[in-house]
Amino acid sequence: MKIVVTGSLGHIGKPLTWELLSKGHSVTVISSNSEKRAAIEALGATAAIGSVDDVNFLTTALADADANAIFAMVPPNFAETDQVAYYRRITGNYVRAIAQTGVERVVLLSSYGAHLDKDTGFILGAHHAETILNTLPGNIAITHLRAGYFYYNLFGFTDMIKSAGFIGTNYGGDDLIVLVAPVDIAAVAAEELLKPATGITIRYVASDERTASEIAQGLGAAIGKPDLQWLVLTSEQMKEGMEMRGLPAHVIASFVELGASLHSGDLLNDYNQHKPVLGKVKLEDFAREFAAAF
């Protein structure tokens, strides 16, 4: 197959590209960073340098690759004050480019919680991305990969642990958190891209399931802080803490809204009805990585 991978050689893109190439497929990697060209070509893939925010570039990249399939993602961009508008714009570009080329298979990186149409912060963009992608012609097979809480997001608590001695958000304690490693997402994405498919499907991707307290215990044990706790703050307390860090108002609002949805359990309603086979990377594996960086 001829496959286009977006996301450059990031946490997901690099292992996904390697997996597809190792199976003998032709891969074109889209990257907005021209400095990645050499690394992409060193893997044996073709580099297409440009932005998915440019529909003309995206269309040309798919056409030049003569692509059968695409792994599509919306690059994170917290600078965009209207995240829904941003997700809609980028996904609209994908729809226009795919419709004009020969792509028959689309795998979208989405998120757990994408079944909800409100009150999910950044994840609301994934809901709109799925909805827009579903407007493609029926002969194009689409899979929405709804990924859980990325392990590497836990690195964001490093300073809090060092300064305050605990993790604190408007979710925590006994709240269940569905964790996922990028390499496990890459493995599932490769499987979906290569298997025969029709219509629109949804597949959840997760590596481990732990409560926030269990995560704190696991990280704490790895960094020599066995009493580390993950405390549940009020949304106002979380907001004030993020304001002290100087984060933009629109970013704070999204994080607070997302956290409240996780704490209420709404974010996991659909996931709990369609639980996947868990991936290989467990909390203890990530805890060693966290400790090394800590």
Score class of each variant (00 low, 15 high):
146 R>S: 06
97 A>Q: 02
145 L>E: 04
149 Y>G: 06
105 R>N: 14
89 R>K: 15
117 D>V: 07
114 A>W: 12
77 N>M: 13
96 R>S: 15
119 D>E: 12
54 D>K: 08
48 A>M: 00
130 E>F: 04
133 L>C: 00
151 Y>E: 04
144 H>W: 07
122 F>D: 11
151 Y>M: 04
113 G>D: 09
51 S>K: 12
129 A>M: 02
117 D>M: 10
139 N>V: 13
49 I>R: 05
110 S>M: 01
83 Q>E: 13
122 F>S: 09
103 V>R: 07
123 I>Y: 09
159 D>K: 15
119 D>A: 12
124 L>M: 02
124 L>A: 01
59 T>K: 12
54 D>C: 07
152 Y>L: 12
139 N>H: 15
159 D>N: 14
90 I>T: 12
131 T>F: 09
53 D>G: 14
118 K>L: 00
101 T>D: 01
69 A>P: 12
57 F>V: 08
101 T>W: 02
57 F>I: 10
59 T>C: 06
113 G>F: 11
157 F>H: 14
142 I>L: 14
128 H>M: 01
157 F>E: 13
155 F>P: 07
129 A>E: 03
80 E>H: 13
166 F>D: 10
144 H>P: 00
52 V>E: 10
90 I>Y: 06
89 R>G: 12
110 S>C: 03
60 T>F: 04
135 T>Q: 06
166 F>G: 00
90 I>P: 08
149 Y>V: 04
84 V>I: 05
137 P>A: 02
132 I>L: 08
97 A>C: 03
143 T>Q: 05
95 V>Y: 01
53 D>N: 14
159 D>G: 11
84 V>Y: 00
58 L>G: 00
71 F>Y: 15
115 H>C: 04
146 R>M: 07
110 S>V: 05
155 F>E: 11
164 A>C: 05
114 A>K: 05
99 A>T: 14
107 V>M: 11
127 H>E: 00
139 N>S: 13
150 F>G: 02
145 L>S: 04
91 T>S: 05
60 T>L: 13
